[in-house]
Amino acid sequence: MSLRHALLALLTADPMTGYELVKYFDGTTANVWSAPHSQIYPELRRMEADGLIDVREIPRGERATKREYVVNANGVAEFKKWLDEPAVYQSERDVHRLRASHLELSSYESARRQLGAHLNHYSKRLTDAQLFVADIEERRVPLLRKRLERRPEAEHEAIVAYKLFAYRGQVRKAETEIAWAREGLELIDDLERRQIPLYGEAFDGYREPTELF
């Protein structure tokens, strides 16, 4: 997926200004695709040049205008093409598991701090995801309501169902990370309670294995 497809996804719901798009990337869209502001406007210009969106000037105040971006038929076709393509799975780069697999080189205090931060982060993510799922269920999400207003009522069930499916996945992901962090904290408590030594503080480089015989 690219930023281009994330922007097209938003614009299939409703025309938006750049400012409105940025707000979504700062809010709910960040749960599935994050992007800095510095990338959004250049990509919108490229999408306009590639004929995927149209731009219209709308009033802003009494004299000024602002640019509103509207997805056109080419943009919809590009987004549908992306949806139909097989997903490309990237090689894993999991800094948290990499770090966790070598915590014996650290200290119990540091390991506990690392996993505590992980637990706090995903606890907040879980709360946010649960609230967003509830808003989808009650159809309180503004962008969802705009999308439903533009589509026939017969399509509403599928639109809502797929949104719920996606964001319930975020709930389950957060729950899994929370369970993993708690398991790690319990492991640290157990190892420390049994005074299992760590070699992190004494390790200063590779040495040949100690000869036992």
Rank of each mutant, 00 (worst) to 15 (best):
E186H: 07
L21F: 08
L7R: 02
A174T: 10
E149G: 12
Y122V: 03
E20W: 08
H121V: 13
E137I: 02
R140S: 08
Y167D: 06
P42D: 04
H37R: 13
P142H: 04
A134G: 05
R4N: 03
A77N: 03
L212C: 06
Q130H: 00
V141I: 14
V133E: 02
P15W: 09
E68K: 12
D54T: 11
E62V: 05
E157T: 13
V32A: 08
R172D: 15
S107G: 02
E186N: 12
L44Q: 02
T17D: 09
L52P: 04
E109R: 15
V95I: 12
G18A: 13
D204P: 01
L144E: 10
V32P: 00
K124T: 13
L103Q: 14
E57L: 11
R67S: 12
P59L: 10
K66S: 06
A6N: 04
F25Q: 05
Q114I: 10
L126Y: 11
S91Q: 12
E153K: 08
R150Q: 12
E186Q: 13
V133K: 01
S123G: 15
A202P: 00
G27S: 15
K173L: 14
R147Q: 11
A77G: 05
T210K: 05
W33T: 05
R151D: 06
A117G: 08
T17Q: 03
L148K: 11
A64E: 10
M16Y: 03
L83S: 10
R93Y: 03
G184E: 11
L105D: 07
P197K: 09
L44T: 01
E85W: 05
D14R: 15
W180A: 14
Y69H: 09
H121Q: 12
N120G: 07
R4G: 01
A166K: 15
H5P: 02
N31D: 11
Y199G: 13
A6R: 00
A117C: 04
Q90D: 14
E78Q: 06
L115W: 14
Q39I: 02
R4A: 00
Y162F: 06
D204R: 13
W82S: 07
R140C: 00
V76M: 13
L83P: 08
A9E: 10
A77L: 04
S101Q: 09
V32M: 09
R60H: 10
S106Y: 07
A134H: 02
L143E: 04
Y24C: 08
T12G: 02
L7W: 00
D190M: 14
S2E: 11
Y108V: 06
D128W: 06
P36N: 01
R99Q: 14
L21T: 07
A35I: 06
L83W: 07
A77P: 04
G205I: 01
N72R: 03
L144F: 00
D26F: 08
S2C: 03
S101I: 05
A111S: 13
K81N: 14
